[in-house]
Amino acid sequence: MINKLKFKNVILILSLGFILTACSQKSERAQEYNKPALYWYNKMLKDISTGFLEEADDTYTSLESEHRNSPLIPTALLILANAHIDNEEYQLANFYLDEYIKRFALSKNIDYVRYLKIKANFLGFSYSLREQQLIEDTIKEIEEYRNLFTDSKYMPLVDTMSARLYMAKASLDKEIADLYKRLDKPKAAKYYEEKVKESWVDAKEIEEVEVPLYRSLFEENLF
């Protein structure tokens, strides 16, 4: 019993120390301003390397606010986007990628940035029944990518994601058709069955599994 109390006290002390340290760091951060662009950039890299992505976001805000035209901004945006992709925070990744595309659309590596945006959307799919519009939008982005960057070295990866997306879309349409059949709505079921037929995916190859095919497509590690 005494050992358990000692253990709980140690945990309490450590937790309190962690909270006080975090508050102290936030207080120090709040007092920082008017620093060179390289200072904020290096601080952002340190935040990312130590796993403090939220702090890295705040540090980037300081960099962008104080040095909006710094040549470090494009690189910082890409580093943050990749960090959030690695951390499975795809919406935040897209925020930085959209900002890059808006501000540096004429960049020589814009094909890489557009590829990253497609990749972030692709990896962000969890339950496709809730992501139907995102599938449609990403397929549209892929078609635009093919038109704009025909010679891009990222095209094979984009093509792989495209194939997976079309199969996911066909699987989703089949799931919806089956649902309408169970609800005794033949017109709606036929509409989605026709959508499956219009795709290049053979409906006979879509197997029913406990984990839906359209989910397993995105859970495999392709990159």
Rank of each mutant, 00 (worst) to 15 (best):
N3L: 05
L5G: 00
K8T: 03
K8C: 03
N9K: 11
L12D: 10
I13Y: 04
L14N: 11
L16C: 04
F18H: 01
I19H: 02
S24F: 01
K26R: 07
Y33Q: 11
L38R: 13
T50D: 09
T50Q: 12
G51K: 02
D57I: 01
Y60Q: 09
Y60A: 04
T61W: 00
S62C: 02
E64N: 08
S65N: 08
H67G: 01
H67T: 04
A76K: 14
A76I: 12
L78W: 00
I79T: 14
N82T: 10
I85P: 02
D86R: 10
Q91M: 05
F95Q: 13
E99C: 00
Y100H: 11
Y100K: 10
Y100L: 04
I101Y: 00
F104Y: 15
A105N: 14
L106H: 10
D111W: 08
Y115D: 05
L116E: 09
N121R: 12
F122R: 13
R130H: 08
E131L: 00
Q133G: 00
Q133I: 03
L134H: 06
I135C: 06
E136Q: 14
E136F: 05
K140F: 08
K140W: 02
I142C: 08
N147M: 05
L148W: 01
T150M: 13
K153G: 11
P156T: 01
L157M: 11
S162T: 12
A163M: 06
R164C: 05
L165H: 08
M167V: 11
A168S: 15
K169P: 06
D173N: 15
K174I: 11
I176N: 14
I176E: 15
D178C: 00
L179H: 12
Y180S: 12
R182V: 06
D184N: 15
D184C: 08
A188H: 09
Y192M: 06
E194K: 10
K195E: 15
K197W: 03
V201H: 07
D202M: 00
E208N: 09
E210W: 04
Y214L: 02
S216Y: 06
L217D: 11
F218D: 10
E219H: 06
E219F: 06
L222E: 11
L222S: 08
F223M: 10
